[in-house]
């Protein structure tokens, strides 16, 4: 336990409920390091989460925290940001939240480009309900609802978000904990909607059914399959098969939603607005 944990976590709520070796604890640690680097006051941070293992993160962090309904964290966060743009708003979602039940909110948040940083804990499984496959579970993996292996194809969340018009998309893993902190910082500083997908591991409900004996084995898999953006272009296509790129994948300027609406208010109040 470092001083940083004591500063940003609700110490009386620890130990957390996550299983031994779970990636969620690593990501939370990387996140509070990012807040420290950003120098944000705890009072000005709003953390919003959905439902599932990842959703529990808001209970442990000493910010303004909102643990919402399954898949809906983004829309609650959107209301918060619109109503109080001074707040630094972070959203925490699992792959069930972001890619399944709340997929519509994810793509529309990308389109809208509101200044929120969304962090997706992608562990490729529904952990809390006991290991059902999710829209990001790879093909031919085992899950409690896929006892013979999955036949469903999986989503690539990064490409989904880029396709939906996101202005900042990055990906990393729970193994690359330092890089995660850097990406959280970059995402927060980006003016607009920033998505950071964290490839993480669920040792109990994914690992055990899919030939990973230990949490460390899963982290090693992440290390071996992640290719940094700088290298990705130099790696031959056939070698990228089954691997994924980590780092900043898109970063572009796009009008930010709250600023645009504030501009509209100004125009309307001056009586300059054009009406049909």
């Amino acid at each position: 336990m470092g001083a940083i944990h004591e500063k940003y976590l609700r110490m009386d709520k620890l130990p957390h409920i996550w299983c031994p070796g779970c990636g969620n604890g690593i990501i939370m640690s990387s996140f509070i390091r990012a807040i420290e680097k950003l120098g944000y006051e705890k009072d000005e941070v709003a953390a919003v989460s959905g439902i599932g293992c990842s959703g529990r993160i808001t209970g442990y962090m000493d910010f303004n925290t909102l643990h919402t309904t399954h898949g809906r964290a983004l829309v609650f966060a959107t209301g918060i940001k619109m109503a109080n743009p001074g707040l630094k708003v972070f959203v925490f979602m699992g792959d069930g939240d972001a890619a399944a039940i709340g997929g519509n909110h994810l793509i529309h948040s990308c389109r809208r480009n509101i200044d929120i940083t969304a962090i997706i804990f992608n562990n490729h499984i529904y952990g809390m309900t006991g290991g059902q496959f999710s829209p990001t579970t790879f093909r031919n993996k085992y899950a409690t609802t896929a006892p013979y292996g999955t036949t469903d194809p999986d989503f690539d969340l990064v490409n989904l978000c880029i396709g939906a018009g996101a202005s900042y998309v990055a990906r990393s893993t729970s193994y690359h904990a330092k890089m995660l902190t850097d990406l959280f910082v970059a995402g927060a500083l980006h003016k607009g909607f920033a998505v950071i997908e964290v490839i993480t591991h669920c040792p109990v409900n994914f690992g055990r059914r899919n030939e990973f004996d230990t949490p460390a084995d899963m982290l090693r898999w992440q290390k071996d399959h992640a290719v940094r953006t700088a290298k990705a272009d130099m790696v031959p296509m056939e070698e990228m098969e089954g691997k994924f790129v980590i780092g900043e994948l898109i970063k572009k300027e796009k009008p930010e939603y709250v600023e645009e609406y504030d501009r509209l208010i100004e125009t309307v109040r001056k009586g300059d607005a054009h009406r049909e």
């Binding site: 909102l66 609650f76 959107t78 209301g79 918060i80 109503a83 707040l87």
Partner: peptide, 12 residues
């Protein structure tokens, strides 16, 4: 999404 945003705004 509409009711979610309403509740979020109300939190502030």
């Amino acid at each position: 999404a509409s009711i979610g945003a309403v509740i979020g705004a109300s939190c502030t």
